[in-house]
Design a binder for these strands. Sequence first.
DNA 1: CGCGCGATTGAGTAATTTCAAATCTAGTGG
DNA 2: CCACTAGATTTGAAATTACTCAATCGCGCG
Lengths: 187, 187
Amino acid sequence: MFEVLRTHIEKIIKLTDEEFELVAKHFTIQTFKRRDYIIQKGDRVEHSYFVISGLLMLAYTDESAKQHIVSFAMEDWWETDFLAYHSQTKATMSLQCLEDTQVLCLSLTNYKQLCFNSHKMEHFFLEKANGGHIGSQQRILSFLTSGAKERYEQLLKRYPSLLQRVPKTLIASYLGVSRETLSRLYT
Amino acid sequence: MFEVLRTHIEKIIKLTDEEFELVAKHFTIQTFKRRDYIIQKGDRVEHSYFVISGLLMLAYTDESAKQHIVSFAMEDWWETDFLAYHSQTKATMSLQCLEDTQVLCLSLTNYKQLCFNSHKMEHFFLEKANGGHIGSQQRILSFLTSGAKERYEQLLKRYPSLLQRVPKTLIASYLGVSRETLSRLYT
DNA sequence: CGCGCGATTGAGTAATTTCAAATCTAGTGG
DNA sequence: CCACTAGATTTGAAATTACTCAATCGCGCG
């Protein structure tokens, strides 16, 4: 279980066994079933989640009950409603399981403690945050520069497994087009 | 000059005079004129920039020479081509001055040194990176959930001064619509 | 076999783009 | 103070693209 986390962290910083032991203590494990909500709109967001196995979607539901997918989170990803998490406000988005999923949970308190006590871990989170920022910026770029078709191709190129794992309706919602339009793109 | 930076940093962490002295040594000052490029596509990106005064735009130019604005950077903002900066690759975007602008430059080496030597500063950058990630995610959300008109209103609400400072053509390019469409929105 | 979910297709409507032309505005030089 | 110009903005009209709503198709599962 925790080996996945360790491997993940050690892509960025090296930890001794004792150090990793200490880090691991800050996490709890949880398992969810397909369709379960980890976070629902309005919840207090106590944790961020590291996905060990399974697949999540971070989605916003608008006034007319339409879902918009901000992000998919597969194995090795960190996800939560980061705004609500860091600013301790109510969730505006929901985090839902698209498959049976196992996650490691990190409370905000433990996150801060980890950062405060370990320069290395703070560095790790800094790298992750930078990566997240860059990734989101690339996604913004794709909205500005590419039509839906190109965005679709880019997505499949980057995450080929996604098409196998999620219905096209959700892909469409991630791309920002209707499912009908997506369906008509590649004909 | 540097007081602006200090005030900015101290919104997040407190520094003694000596500590700030040390931090300040890692920066250099540069001034640019309106229309100057700070970064051009293809450049090595050596620095990230803290805007003291003036206004920048971070933009991507596509195959058909059309500009797409990823971000405006006003006073108190950090900007650069973060992907190129952190991964030490050539710039894919350009950073250009929309007004005469004064910036503090932080080289990647100095950034790393600062992080390595100062837990506080690393914490500062972590907070900034988290903020950047959250901000970008909100922008993605606005593309998914809102039409161009709403995005325009949100932008003006958040940065009322922007309309005074930049031509609408650029606003349109930031919103992802043609200038003609933007012009027709509020009639 | 038939139900239900997801994907596709069709038709009409709405929104956006493109290209071209007209208008407006701020700053410059006479 | 005025005329002029360059850049910015607006407007018009046709063409494209995407959306909605509805109907149909395909397939796995009880």
